[in-house]
Amino acid sequence: MTRGVRGATTVPKNEATVIIENTKILIEEMVSKNGIDPSEVSHVFISVTKDITATFPAKALRKLTGWTYVPVMCMTEIDVPNSLKLCIRIMMVVNTDTPQHKIDHVFHNQAVNLRPDLTEKVGE
């Protein structure tokens, strides 16, 4: 069975090194909390708000061992008025027997406001 593992973070500025580092930290925690093996990942979608243009956040995933062949796609999030700025969202689709209610979704920084029902505050 496949399950979606969700993660999101915000960055303090539109700078390549900041985007990659924050994305890497988020992915590492998603993987750790859910016991994810990259060979069990079907694909990963990464969306960003329109104010993130300095680099592709997917570059962070490529820095991790074992992720070379995992399909990844970056895209722009819809521009909803008054929505969270400088936000990176991840949807990782994983083959797992873990029940949906046992998946640990990870939210960092201001992104904890996206799903307060699922989050513990990390960062900012």
Rank of each mutant, 00 (worst) to 15 (best):
A54T: 02
D79L: 02
V80A: 15
L84C: 01
L61D: 05
P57I: 01
A54L: 11
T53D: 13
S83I: 03
T76E: 14
L64S: 09
C74S: 10
T68R: 14
I52T: 03
T65D: 15
A60C: 13
T68W: 07
N95A: 03
S83D: 02
I52Q: 00
E77T: 03
L64Q: 06
N82F: 15
R89H: 01
R89A: 00
T65Q: 15
F45K: 13
M75S: 11
V48T: 05
P99I: 14
M91D: 14
K59F: 13
T98E: 15
D104G: 00
G66P: 12
M73S: 08
N82E: 15
I90S: 08
E77H: 12
S83L: 07
T49D: 06
K85Q: 08
T68A: 08
M92G: 06
M92P: 12
D97F: 02
I103Q: 04
I78N: 14
M75Q: 07
A60D: 09
P71L: 04
L61N: 14
M75Y: 01
P81A: 09
P81M: 04
I78W: 06
W67K: 09
I103V: 15
P57R: 12
N82D: 15
D51W: 09
T76V: 09
L84Y: 01
T96F: 00
G66I: 05
P57Q: 06
I103P: 01
L86Q: 07
N95M: 05
L86S: 03
D51I: 10
H43D: 10
N95I: 14
W67I: 10
T68E: 14
G66L: 08
T68C: 07
N95E: 00
P71F: 03
F45W: 09
V48L: 04
M73G: 04
F56I: 04
M73Y: 06
M92I: 04
H43S: 10
L64C: 07
T49G: 10
A58V: 08
L61R: 13
H43T: 11
K102S: 14
R62P: 11
K59H: 12
Y69E: 06
K63E: 12
S47H: 07
I46A: 05
R62W: 13
I90L: 10
Y69T: 13
D97K: 01
I78T: 06
P81Q: 03
I88F: 03
C74G: 08
T68V: 10
F56W: 12
V44L: 13
Y69Q: 07
V44S: 02
K102V: 09
K85I: 04
K85Y: 02
